[in-house]
Each structure stands twice: as C-alpha cells, then as structure tokens.
Amino acid sequence: MSRRITEAGEAVALMDAGLRLMVANGGRRPRVADIVAAAGLSNDAFYRSFGSKDALVDAIVERGAHIVVGYVRRRMAQASADGPEVQLRAGLAAVVRQASDVTLARQTRAVLANAGGHPSRAAHVTVALVDALAALFVPAAAELGAGDPVRAARTTAGAAVAALQYWLFAEEVPGSAEVEHLVGFLLAGVRAHRVSRYGSKGQ
C-alpha cells in the first residue's frame, strides 16, 4: 500500500512540475531531465509513472478535463434548488468561464501546445470531456422538456466546449456579455425543442 501511495505521489509531482515548465517555457515541451529536476525526483521515478513525455502530457490533459467536469458538477449542484434552467445555465457558464481564468487559460494553452502533434489523442480527450459534460446536462434538459434530452445535452455541451477552445486558442478572455450571450443562445436551443403534451416538438 505504501509503495502505491508513493508512486501516486510521484506521478502528481511530475505532472505538476511538467505543467509548470510548459507554462514557463511558453508551451515548449520540457525535457525529462528538467521535469524530474523540478519535481525533485529521478529518471527512474519518471519512467515508473510514465512511459514517455507523451504519456505525461496525456495524463496532464486528462487531469485537466476531470477538473473541469468536477467544477461544473459542483456549480450545478449549488444551483439545483433553483430549477433546471438555472442549473443548466450555471453548468454552461462554468464551462466557458474556464477561459476567463487567466492562470487556467495559460496552463491549458501550454498543454494543448504540447499535445498538438497528436491530434487523435487530443480528439479523444475532447470527446470524453463533451460526453462527461453531456451526462451532467441530461437531467436538466429532460426537466426542461427537451424532445431528445440526450441529444440536446450533447449538442449543448459540444457547443460550450467549442467556444471554450476558441477563446483559448484565440487567446481571448471572454467578458460577461460574451458568456451570457452564449449561455442564453444555448438555453434557447434547448427550450426550442420541447415536447408538447401531444408528443410533438414545439418551437
């Protein structure tokens, strides 16, 4: 047990060090030697946790996606007593406001720069992120009467992630007006596909 805990701690330290160096280097990929030095560990510790720098980048990207999903889940839980529309609004705003956090945006751009040479893995992470967010949005979409809540949730999540990526890649910080416009637009899309009591989709 202690060995597993130690190795888990090493992996976290290496990911933290790798992320710090990526940001400090303006997105340039750091050397393994620099990463282990920054983490205060050895090459053996690095290769015990990660088979390569690519594996380290993958782990950092996946950890970032989990953090985003966890943040969105907490914001939606906080709004759960206010009804499905407020809850979905809180979730969507939580996604796109990741681009408003200057530190987080800088970290995300640095990681994406390192993952840029591996589009298949970057695509995998994007799909996983959209699917995880869609799963959070489905109950609210269903309560709002969406004719196909699963499809509505996935479409809404995909649009929110695409907007987030746009602002990150463009190195733009969205203001409150931009965030509100996007959230309102996406909510209007969900509302536009409600099911009437006769089973048809209303406009």
Rank of each mutant, 00 (worst) to 15 (best):
A94L: 12
D54G: 10
V173R: 15
A122W: 07
L21C: 00
G175V: 08
V96I: 06
R154Y: 10
R197C: 08
A55D: 00
S200A: 10
S100M: 08
R63P: 06
R4C: 08
A188M: 11
V130A: 05
G116I: 08
D34G: 11
A123T: 15
Y71E: 13
I60Q: 01
L88H: 04
D101H: 05
G117W: 09
S49Y: 03
E180N: 15
V125G: 00
E7A: 09
V23K: 15
V190T: 02
L112D: 15
D148H: 13
G26H: 01
A81W: 04
T155V: 12
A39I: 00
H66N: 11
E172F: 05
R4D: 11
M1A: 02
V150Y: 13
V72T: 05
F50K: 09
S2V: 13
V86N: 00
D34E: 14
G199K: 06
L88A: 04
V32Y: 00
A39F: 06
D54C: 10
S52N: 02
P174L: 01
F50C: 14
Q107G: 07
R4G: 01
R63Q: 15
L19V: 07
L129F: 05
A59T: 12
G117D: 00
L92N: 04
V130G: 08
L88N: 01
V161R: 07
G70A: 09
A142F: 02
E143A: 00
K201M: 14
G27T: 13
A24P: 03
M22H: 10
G70W: 10
H181T: 10
V32R: 04
